Simulated assay, not measured.
Amino acid sequence: MKSIACFLVLSALTSAAFAQENFKCPDDFGFYPHHRSCDKYWKCDNNAAELKTCGNGLAFDNSDPKYLTENCDYLHNVDCGDRTEIEPAISTPHCSRLYGIFYDDKKCDVFWSCWNGEASRYQCPPGLAYDREDRVCKWSDQVPECKAEEVGGGFACPAPGEITNSGTFSRHAHPDDCRKYYICLEGVPREYGCPIGTVFKIGDADGTGNCEDPEDVPGCEDYYGDLDLKSIRKSELLAGTGNYGSSRPQAAPAPAPRPNKPRPPQPARNAPESADN
């Protein structure tokens, strides 16, 4: 009985290997998805088929209807459909697979871009946290896994009714950084930063303030040191980005297609791959 069982297993493996090795190229040249695996594909050249495997953490993008594109992309960018099989994960520090974008286990505003197992650290802008599902930086209160104090330095908004005549929002100085401040919206703190060349000046009434010149803010006069602020302000005004002394909060940064930092390396065409022997 044992020998029969071994024979059946061997026959099944042989049949599977035979089916893979006998892929017939539909055309002389092209790149075709594997029928079961999402990270494997067939490369046809002169009507000869070669089985290829994308880098660990990448999948074959079969969106080209003409099958002329050889492209491996991040797993989360590829619709695998019925191609459910995938190579086992190969992990390195901060990388669940050799290629991909992964969240940090300890800090919710940090994520890692991994390329061939090498991890590059990225941090969301102040007040934002990395959303694991959408893979963008959002306000920390919009990310379930993140606590506001993790990215807000422990700042807590005043209790309802504590500040009179504050309107729909209130502004509060950052305890450690002259350029930063918090806006409280319905009890939720969100961290902002004044335009470069300015610092936050606490207003006359509780919960108010504006971005002003450092020389007009006691204790923050030397915030920028020896930087030429006049040249910085002139360049910002010419670019239309100056926003000095505004009485309204700056617009919240809209979630970008990619996290709002220098873009991590993107899978290129002819992405790293390994040939199956």
Rank of each mutant, 00 (worst) to 15 (best):
C54D: 07
P214V: 04
M1R: 08
N260P: 04
S91L: 05
Y223F: 13
T84A: 15
G152T: 05
P160W: 08
C184M: 08
A89N: 12
E118K: 04
C194V: 05
R83V: 01
V143Q: 08
E150N: 03
Y74I: 00
E21A: 12
F18E: 15
H76S: 11
A251E: 15
E118N: 07
K107E: 11
D204H: 00
I4F: 15
R263V: 13
F18Y: 11
Y74F: 15
P33D: 05
I163G: 10
F18A: 13
A275P: 03
D216K: 13
C114T: 02
Y99P: 10
D28Y: 14
K24V: 11
P144H: 00
K106A: 14
W42D: 09
S63A: 08
A156E: 09
R190Q: 12
D45Q: 14
M1D: 14
I202C: 05
N62W: 07
N270P: 06
N71Q: 13
T168I: 08
P65Q: 06
W42K: 00
P26T: 03
C157V: 01
G100V: 03
V143P: 02
T84R: 13
D105T: 00
K24G: 12
D176V: 03
D204M: 00
A119Q: 08
G167V: 09
D204V: 04
N270C: 06
F111T: 05
D64C: 10
C194P: 09
A49N: 06
R233Y: 04
R258G: 09
Y67W: 10
N270L: 07
E118Y: 05
C220A: 07
T69M: 14
G161T: 10
D206M: 02
Q123V: 12
R190K: 06
K40Y: 11
